[in-house]
Nucleic acid binder design. Structure first.
Length: 578
RNA sequence: UGUCCAUUGGUGUAAUGGUAGCACAUCUGACUCUGGAUCAGCCAGUCGAGGUUCGAGUCCUCGAUGGACAACCA
């Protein structure tokens, strides 16, 4: 984080932005202004049952971002009330991902830390006649709940005495009953139009080992009974969640009110959706389990670890989250906005290198045999501080197969017979002839160069329309390059026709592996590195000129470099040519 | 068929009763040793009908459309 001094520009920009608050910022500012609270405390409450994805990134940016903006704090709280689904593995990865995103939590908590308190409060509610032990079976509870249009029926156990409820609940906790035989329910209204109020279940019996509390408990609180109280215990001022919890809010408030504890408040925003991707944990898990992708961190996955391996930067994801805004209406964000945010950042920070993905050999017939010269290339035209490097040049080179056509069509500025082009940072060359194999494929392009154009400029001032990249054949190093494209071929992968699933919408060409790509020697040292600020290992990122942004993959070994394509460059030729 | 939430260009998001703005995408053009970047510009919007008001995207009523809710998941 840079502490650039505030200039008049930034402060007036801030003033201009002041009016454009999202609805959460308005709520916070109002509360701050009217003294409801002196500072804010938010929380990010993942369940440790999977890896974080781009939807979580939005939530992280909102929760941590808001606290940061208003000088407050954010707790990380694992919502670990369901031991059968949760695991320490996820606890670790979630912390890594948050750190990678560049945020730091004030306190780290677990809903399971509050199990004792939650139990005591349940007893309080029983004593107040607001909770009861229900012996109905799962099926009975389900049918007696009614439907959204039909009121439910009271449980026959609903009017048990406080003493009996206390006794039964204690025995539930003591492990006297089997899983599923009894539950503790809040006693509210079985005919309530909001289904959440039809005597919601507070505790179920689960003889399962918990990743933190071990075998201490065999009853576990449900989300609705645990979440609000956990917020209250921590004095969370703003409990920010997604829209589907909107209908839970009255219940959230009800428990807090009945218990007469710190009144945390819940606010809901619309979850993030991005076209061409799926976001549900279930589907992401299926992609991994059934090997449609290589793992949670497959570079095509919308998980944070997937983005990281793909070469995304936290800055780009934060910028993306800033741009998508925060509101309450359902939305589907264009994938291109994500890519725009990535390019925007990488353009500023990624050093340029020359790499030929699909090589074809070029021989400069009038260049001295055996000669090598070093030419100076700019590392990053966007940042002079990145300096320059020396790139070896020789008689034999590789260029991109795409960059040559025997006969140039209109508006094709690259190499063609008789058409002079610039080899970037090197010389002007003109193709003279080609060699072909038996199938008619070009195996070698012969050209001539103009020695006076060394460095890429003609002393006589003549111009060329095209500049192409190249790698010296003698000095090239080889690497594998994984060309990724979007994982799904359709905009809304979840919309599958009858008899099909989202899997039928997978893009069969989402990964193309290229071997023996030719890289300039400077790339030999490309590697993974540990970010000193976060302690997270990240891949070194580059722009391969005219091709796109690429990063080192963690599969790279001593003698075998592997790169991932993060995204392409905008390609206006691609549009012209079609 | 119940309750709740939402509805502004292709996609997002502002405008807090007073000139409908910004970003992405698209398309044009300029510039360029990356057909990149940058710069300039074009196109394009208040779901509908009533009402309140000097004035409505904004407030009210009715309707339409989309979403959420009927796990001992979160």
């Amino acid at each position: 984080m840079s502490d650039t001094p505030h200039t008049e520009n930034t402060s007036s920009a801030a003033a201009a932005n002041e009016k454009q608050l999202n609805f959460l910022e308005e709520i916070i500012e109002q509360g701050l202004n009217d003294g409801t609270y002196q500072s804010i405390l938010t929380r990010f409450p993942p369940e440790p049952n999977g890896y974080l994805h781009s939807g979580h990134a939005k939530s992280i940016c909102i929760n941590f971002g808001l606290a940061k903006k208003y000088g407050g704090k954010t707790n990380l709280r694992f919502d670990d009330t369901n031991p059968v689904k949760e695991d320490t593995e996820y606890v670790e990865s979630i912390q890594d991902d948050i750190r990678w995103m560049g945020f730091q939590w004030a306190g780290i908590h677990y809903a399971s830390d509050y199990f004792d308190q939650l139990y005591e409060w349940a007893v309080v509610l029983i004593k107040k006649g607001l909770a009861y032990v229900d012996d109905q079976s799962l099926e009975e509870i389900r049918t007696n709940r009614g439907t959204v249009t039909v009121p439910g029926k009271n449980s026959p156990y609903r009017d048990r005495s406080v003493e009996e409820n206390l006794d039964l609940f204690a025995r539930m906790k003591a492990g006297e009953f089997e899983d599923g035989s009894r539950v503790l329910r809040a006693k509210i209204d079985m005919a309530h139009p909001n289904m959440m109020f039809r005597d919601p279940i507070m505790y179920r019996i689960l003889h399962a080992e918990h990743h933190r509390t071990g075998n201490k408990w065999c009853i576990y609180p449900m989300y609705d009974y645990a979440h609000g109280q956990s917020d209250s215990i921590e004095n969370i001022t703003h409990s920010i969640c997604t829209l589907e919890f909107d209908i839970h809010r009255p219940l959230y408030d009800w428990f807090i009110e009945q218990l007469d504890i710190y009144p945390s408040h819940q606010y809901e925003f619309a979850r993030l959706n991005i076209n061409y991707t799926v976001m549900s944990k279930r589907k992401l898990l299926q992609l991994v389990k059934e090997h449609y992708v290589s793992g949670w961190d497959d570079p095509r996955m919308p998980t944070l670890c997937g983005f990281r391996r793909r070469g995304y930067t936290p800055e780009s994801i934060r910028a993306f989250c800033e741009r998508i805004g925060v509101a309450k209406r359902d939305n589907i964000i264009d994938y291109s906005l994500l890519e725009f945010s990535l390019r925007e950042h990488l353009n500023k920070v990624a050093q340029r290198r020359m790499v030929v993905l699909d090589p074809v050999k070029v021989v400069i017939d009038n260049y001295p045999e055996g000669k090598t010269e070093m030419l100076t290339a700019v590392n990053n035209p966007e940042n002079a501080d990145d300096g320059t490097r020396e790139v070896p040049f020789g008689r034999e080179l590789f260029i991109e197969r795409d960059d040559f056509m025997e006969v140039a069509p209109k508006k094709y500025f690259r190499m063609a017979i008789g058409q002079e082009v610039r080899l970037r940072y090197a010389y002007f060359v003109t193709a003279q002839s080609v060699e072909k194999d038996a199938d008619g494929n070009i195996t070698c392009i012969h050209c001539t160069y103009d020695p006076a154009t060394r460095g890429g400029d003609a002393p006589d001032g003549r111009k060329v329309k095209g500049t192409i990249h190249w790698v010296s054949a003698q000095h090239a190093i080889e690497a594998e390059v994984r060309m990724f494209d979007r994982l799904f071929a359709t905009e809304a992968p979840d919309d599958a026709p009858e008899g099909k699933t989202f899997l039928d919408n997978l893009n069969p060409n989402s990964l193309q592996v290229l071997q023996h790509c030719k890289l300039e020697p400077a790339l030999a040292s490309a590697s993974m590195y540990t970010n000193p600020e976060t302690g997270i290992t990240e891949p070194e990122r580059f722009q391969f000129e005219r091709l796109g942004y690429f990063c080192v993959d963690r599969d790279s070994t001593e003698g075998h470099l592997v790169f991932n394509r993060s995204c392409t460059l905008k390609d206006s030729w691609a549009k012209i040519s079609k």
